[in-house]
Amino acid sequence: MDRILITGGAGFIGSHLADGLINQGYRVRVLDALSEQVHGDIRRPPDYLNPAVEFVHGDVCDASSVRDALLNVDAVFHFAAAVGVGQSMYQIERYTDINNRGTAVLLQCLIEQPVKKLVVASSMSVYGEGLYRTADGRPCAPPERPLTQLQQGSWELLDENGDPLHPLPTPESKVTSPASVYALSKYDQERLCLLVGQAYNIPTVALRFFNVYGTRQALSNPYTGVLAIFASRFLNGNSPLIFEDGEQKRDFVNVQDVVQACVLALERDEAAGRVFNVGSGRSHTVREIAERMGRLLGREEIRPVITRQYRVGDIRHCFADIGEARSVLGYQPRVDLEEGMGELTEWLKTQATLDRFEAANEELSQRGLRL
């Protein structure tokens, strides 16, 4: 394989992947609409995009742009997507259009212009709640927490006897249960790609990214990753707002480890037709992450605020079992959280950012999506 197309490749993860592929000797083309929510009002590729990239300004929902971008391409990474659990619950048409229809447009074009490999970016959000075990040791996939429980400020998942369930690393075999429009659209993306890939003999891999962090995150986008949102709050002298009690567990994976997994998925034939978790294999609470971010930025005097509020579409615990990625892809996370967050905060200190979180949070409240 020689020339690789990355849809959405001017964004956070895609631009890092472009660097990684170019360093490996690939030629990279990027198709990106330069969404204002992510890139601001610029009409040119961001300065961080590798100068060796062939940039195509176009929308993944536009078949003509996609066909042009696919010319003489050997493989595709499909990263183009609208991202954000909360926003997806009130911009339903937009998220479905970009994520679902955009993927359908790409696949329709790939039938006409097939490639040797397709890798689609999926998300841990497709699981809904992660895997748990009961008090007597049985693994279980619990349903969503009932609204009455959340209104009482009782956050943990409970079994039928009212006893707390214990969160476990979540494997790919755990039943999917998308809890938001965004999550449902990501599941649709991965299933569409795998289904069409099998039907048309296009080797396809779906990678379920967990909470990716690193440099180049869109700091002024209030629907981006939680680390970027917290950083934007700290840098503007505002307290990060943490939903529920802050003890919800997530898997934070550095973008360089995500690039590693992507390149392995591209190059390993045995990956075709499969789904893999891409995480660090470790869990941390959201409260811990906020406090660590404050220390690294030198803003210890700004304390995170525990809101004890709930957002529709949020889940309690989900962190990755990466055994399949290790055994099949040879994936091994290399960047520990301390090192990765240190690099991130050094970059953050050089960035200007607008804190739009309060406006986004109020939007959810007015629509009854924050309780």
Results as ranks from 00 to 15, higher is better:
K117Y: 12
K117E: 12
K117V: 02
L118Q: 08
L118H: 08
V119C: 09
V119I: 15
V120M: 06
V120E: 10
A121D: 04
S122C: 04
S122T: 03
S123I: 05
S123N: 05
S123R: 06
M124D: 14
S125D: 14
S125A: 15
S125R: 02
V126R: 07
V126H: 09
V126C: 06
Y127I: 00
Y127K: 00
G128N: 06
G128I: 04
G128V: 02
E129R: 01
E129S: 06
G130Q: 09
G130I: 02
L131K: 03
L131G: 00
Y132T: 01
R133T: 05
T134D: 02
A135V: 10
D136E: 15
D136G: 00
G137K: 05
G137F: 11
G137T: 02
R138G: 00
P139A: 10
C140R: 03
A141T: 06
P142H: 09
P143Y: 13
E144R: 09
R145N: 14
R145T: 13
R145W: 10
R145F: 09
P146C: 01
P146T: 02
Q149H: 05
Q149C: 04
Q152R: 15
Q152N: 11
Q152P: 00
Q152H: 12
G153W: 13
G153E: 14
S154R: 14
W155N: 08
W155K: 08
W155I: 04
L157I: 02
L157Q: 14
D159Y: 08
E160S: 03
N161T: 11
N161A: 15
G162P: 01
D163I: 01
D163C: 04
P164T: 09
P164D: 12
L165H: 03
L168M: 14
L168F: 07
P169H: 11
T170S: 09
T170V: 05
T170E: 13
P171I: 08
P171C: 11
E172A: 03
E172I: 10
E172V: 06
E172D: 14
E172L: 00
S173K: 07
S173G: 04
S173Q: 14
K174I: 01
K174T: 11
K174W: 10
V175F: 04
V175G: 05
T176D: 11
T176I: 08
T176N: 09
T176H: 14
P178E: 11
A179M: 15
A179T: 14
S180K: 09
V181F: 13
V181N: 12
V181Y: 11
Y182H: 10
Y182S: 02
A183T: 03
L184T: 11
L184F: 15
S185L: 07
S185R: 06
